[in-house]
Design a protein around this nucleic acid. Structure first.
Lengths: 220, 220
DNA sequence: GACTATTTTAAACGAACGTTTGAACTAAAT
DNA sequence: ATTTAGTTCAAACGTTCGTTTAAAATAGTC
């Protein structure tokens, strides 16, 4: 049974690896199962055998990729607030806990496409995509929103939401559209070899933006 | 000939209007010509008659939408730098010239989907999409980069490029993913009825982020 | 009213898609 | 050696896609 299971898992993972790269590069609808099974060197029918359908394949691919990132985000934030129990947590440390697990994906070359797939997912439509995002996002939003609230006590809730949204946009754009940044800078500004300059600049940028003492009145 | 041209233009525009909305909602590959022609109440073959192919249809849709935005961006920046000839231009005014023409698209309900289509285009693949984006972006990048350089004389070129990239991410995310912001805030933070609070907050956020005096050394 | 050019229409084309099927294959258990 | 459960495989299924075709309809010209 050991070898049988090894084969099983092997085929499953080869399909998911190939699907992850092809979905990120060409999109979900534009990527055919035949393209995936060709790249994975498996039979066409094995996708429906192991996953049931193409829809459930992408769900598994996304969950496999996003869960270690998000659990790491929660773990680091919990450690951060635990060690500083009571006293306010520095804003830049909170943002570091949120950004870094995503950036660390770039260390693994086989995962470099996944963040682009996640960014693309925001624009994909379908019965499953929105559900996955909300399902994986909601457990993350509350703890981080509370951490931001204690770090920015002078701001109203909606103001924090606005600024968190802006920071999210910067991060997502940075990790999923890095190619356009490379093009703009003639490859001077890159994220591939070492993400530390990128994440430090991103933290500096978004910390300054969120710390801005001036705020619009009320929630209008 | 007058009525003939009217019909011609009418069918063309009805196709483009329907395509813009459907492409934005469901993506390029997932939207069939039959869905477009049904929504536009025109015959299926008229797409190929008027545009030649589905690929050339999306090119025309994108160009029709992006050109008035980008020409307005250039016009307003030119006026801004002309009136303040010589003296440095305030950073927030430069960003206002860049952001506002995009946000003003939300005033026209028929155009509300176009910015989402543009955001989605960043993640679409194809021989035409990247070419359009670069073709329409390059004439914009140089003037705005120069304006940012004079507004931020203490920063190196690459540092400006990084921060401009972060600001771009915030803006694109705001105009194309406003639904997730509404969900996070229980519809307290919205952009639909009035974009002025959104654009002012976005300008405040990105101005603070770009003005940050601290900068990483060198271009590493 | 006949003629020409332009546009619209219904129908069909071949190709590619996700999925299903049933037989062949593999490896551990009896 | 036979059985059994799990997996792989080639082939085919029905559907949908973008595109093409040729006839019908429309509008302007003489």
């Amino acid at each position: 049974m050991a070898i049988t299971e090894a084969k099983h898992v092997d085929t499953r993972d080869r399909i998911m690896d190939a699907a992850e790269g092809l979905f990120a590069r060409g999109g979900f609808n534009a990527t055919s199962l035949r393209a995936i099974t060709n790249e994975a060197n498996v039979n066409l029918a094995s996708v429906n055998y192991h996953f049931g359908s193409k829809d459930r394949l992408i769900v598994e691919v996304i969950k496999r990729g996003i869960r270690p990132i998000n659990s790491e985000r929660l773990t680091r934030l919990a450690e951060l607030t635990k060690n500083k129990n009571g006293s306010p947590v520095p804003l830049e440390k909170v943002l570091d806990c949120f950004y870094r697990p995503a950036f660390e994906y770039f260390q693994d070359n086989s995962k470099i496409n996944f963040l682009r797939l996640l960014g693309r997912l925001l624009y994909e439509t379908g019965p499953f995509t929105k559900a996955i995002l909300e399902e994986e996002w909601m457990p993350l939003f509350e703890p981080y929103f509370n951490a931001l609230k204690t770090a920015l006590p002078h701001l109203e809730d909606d103001e924090i939401t606005w600024r968190f949204h802006f920071a999210l946009g910067s991060m997502i754009f940075t990790v999923s559209q890095y190619e356009s940044l490379e093009a703009m800078s003639c490859d001077n500004c890159t994220i591939r070899d070492d993400f530390e300059p990128a994440i430090q600049r991103l933290i500096a940028f978004t910390t300054a933006g969120m710390n801005n003492p001036h705020a619009l009145k009320s929630n209008s």
